[in-house]
Design a protein around this nucleic acid. Sequence first.
DNA 1: TGCCCGATTAACT
DNA 2: GTTAATCGGGCAA
Length: 196
Amino acid sequence: MRKRLSRSFFDRSVHEVAPDLIGVTLLVAGVGGRIVEVEAYHQTDPAAHSYRGETERNAVMFGPPGYVYVYRSYGIHWCMNFVCEPKGSAAAVLIRAIVPTEGLPLMRRRRGLSEARLLCSGPGRLCEALRVTAMHNGLALDAPPFALLARSQPVEIVAGIRIGITKAADRPWRYGEKSSRFLSKPFPVNPPASGS
DNA sequence: TGCCCGATTAACT
DNA sequence: GTTAATCGGGCAA
């Protein structure tokens, strides 16, 4: 049995926690898979929901680490974050993609798709597959229905700029498993020594 | 109060 | 490549 992450795992800089989450298995009511893509956000970051202070929506971000912040994106989708750093930092990691491994039939039914690669490759997609909604906002990560299982294998991690934002768009706070086929978008590769 | 924009996605041309 | 779906936050009036 792999080690379960405790809430103290998240009581560190969001820039340490974010890459450490790559390779961790995320389960919601037993359904989920291995995290392959995340993004870090911080109160001092103009792109973060917490940048302009606490509101009803982002209140969980201002609370203690190790809790789930779920918000509605574009009025349609749900997106899931893990709160990091000591209470008040208002920092969180957006979970952007996982490799679906547990509960595949359920995820396929919820998504109306058969292709595994598209089940959880994107923050809105994975919330639909894991059926994460506003009812999960504010719940602790070390208690049911959540389970976080430590890496069982080393992973090769790459960083890049975040996706879908316009403010502070140049900060390289997106982290992912190198060359994973389950990323929401591939990370840019270094240009070959010669070629187009 | 009204308007614009956004940590997205799928279905278009 | 573009666009619709749909709603909370932020800001101007």
